[in-house]
Amino acid sequence: MTSIASRDSVAKGRFLPFALPPALQADSVSRIEARSLELQRAADAARLFCLEHLEVSFDDKSGALWSFMRSKGRPSYSLALLDDIHAMQDGIVARFGGQPTELRYLVAGSRSPGVFSLGGDLDLFATCIRNKDRQALIDYGKSCVRVLHRFHSALDLPIITIGLAQGDALGGGLESLLSFNVVIAERNAKFGFPETLFGLFPGMGAYSIVSRRTNAAFAEEMMLSGRTYTADEMKQAGLVHIVVEPGQGIDAAKEYMLRSQSRHAGIRAVYDVGRRVNPMPLDELDDIVRIWADCALKLSDRDLRLMQRLVAAQNRLPKQLQAAE
């Protein structure tokens, strides 16, 4: 007969004649975790080409993954678009991470005529500021800088990244564009950080990237002046690499990839060295996001009215573009 003490030990799992030894238990847990990770990677890879706010395609001949933002409404970084960009990044790593020679280039552009991206979701910012919701601002900013940081590191894959600006890149749109190895711009595109117009500053990578690619003085000039720059001015500053005529951006990206195929390893290595010599840590970007959020909460009612007028102008833009087509 089993004693009460024995039954208690069995109930509490201290004595189980069929229990696995600790080493086998750990091995079983590891197998379960590995299987779970495998299933998650498969799901990420399957989703890569089925995103609502991104058009993604792969050209196996050139080894190029093409991605174009498809904004519904004003062409800015909504939460839904950010979620899709995160999903695309996860999908690229899941699909190509184990095949280092298959993917060679990542090209990012936009399907909004005349616009690469107008940047952050100003409507969301205004709502968060009025509600004094600092955490929501920080969460949004951290989502943005994680997108930027992964593109800046080329997703830790042996690829060359290409940002394709067939239209204006402003605020957060310019920050994200500058995270790519090579920036191609059509000549009619405009660039700048207009946040100072309503008392804010671009807090999701602008200073970090521009100061590293040029110098701190030029980064501050761009951020504090609020002026817009032409594609040629951006090339002269070293922030745009190739300027082409309107409508020639996609062909220019294809030509660049064809021209660089034989030197792919060497070119990619130079960008790897650049990140090693001048790293851009994620905690630096996170610290700046917190400064940005605190600055945003100090905006006046007048600043918020200016922000809302800009939102209204951005909301009209898709309709104007549709009418012009």
Rank of each mutant, 00 (worst) to 15 (best):
M1S: 11
S3A: 08
A5F: 10
V10Q: 10
V10A: 13
V10Y: 14
A11D: 13
F15R: 15
L16H: 12
L16R: 14
L16W: 14
L16F: 09
L20A: 14
P21T: 08
A26M: 09
S28M: 09
S28C: 08
S30W: 03
S36A: 12
S36P: 00
L37T: 09
L37E: 14
L39E: 04
Q40F: 00
A43R: 05
A43W: 02
A45F: 01
R47M: 06
L48F: 00
E52L: 05
S62F: 04
G63A: 02
G63K: 00
F68A: 11
F68R: 08
M69I: 10
G73N: 04
G73P: 02
S78G: 11
S78P: 05
L82Q: 15
L82K: 10
A87M: 08
Q89D: 07
F96N: 05
P100L: 08
R111D: 05
F116Y: 11
L118M: 06
L118Q: 04
L122A: 05
L122T: 03
N131W: 00
D133T: 04
R134S: 05
A136W: 00
L137G: 01
C144W: 05
R146K: 12
R146A: 12
R146V: 03
H149A: 15
R150Y: 02
H152I: 08
A154P: 09
D156M: 09
D156K: 12
G163H: 03
G163P: 07
G167Y: 02
D168L: 00
D168E: 04
G172H: 10
G173D: 03
S176K: 09
F180P: 02
A185N: 06
A189E: 07
F191A: 01
L197T: 14
F201G: 10
P202W: 00
M204G: 07
A206R: 00
I209R: 00
I209E: 03
V210A: 04
R212N: 04
R213F: 10
R213D: 13
E220I: 13
M223R: 05
L224V: 11
L224K: 14
G226T: 01
T228L: 10
T230R: 09
T230D: 04
A231L: 04
K235T: 05
A237H: 08
H241P: 03
H241E: 09
V243N: 07
P246D: 11
P246N: 10
G247Q: 02
Y256T: 06
M257K: 02
L258C: 06
R259S: 13
R259L: 11
H264I: 01
H264Y: 08
G266R: 13
I267E: 11
A269L: 01
Y271L: 01
D272C: 04
V273D: 07
R276S: 08
M280Q: 06
P281Q: 02
L282S: 03
D287T: 01
D287G: 07
I291A: 13
K298T: 15
L299R: 14
L299A: 13
D301G: 12
R302D: 15
R305K: 15
R305L: 14
R305A: 15
M307F: 04
Q314M: 15
Q314A: 13
L317D: 12
K319F: 15
K319G: 10
Q320I: 14
Q320V: 14
L321N: 14
A323P: 08
A323W: 06
A324L: 13
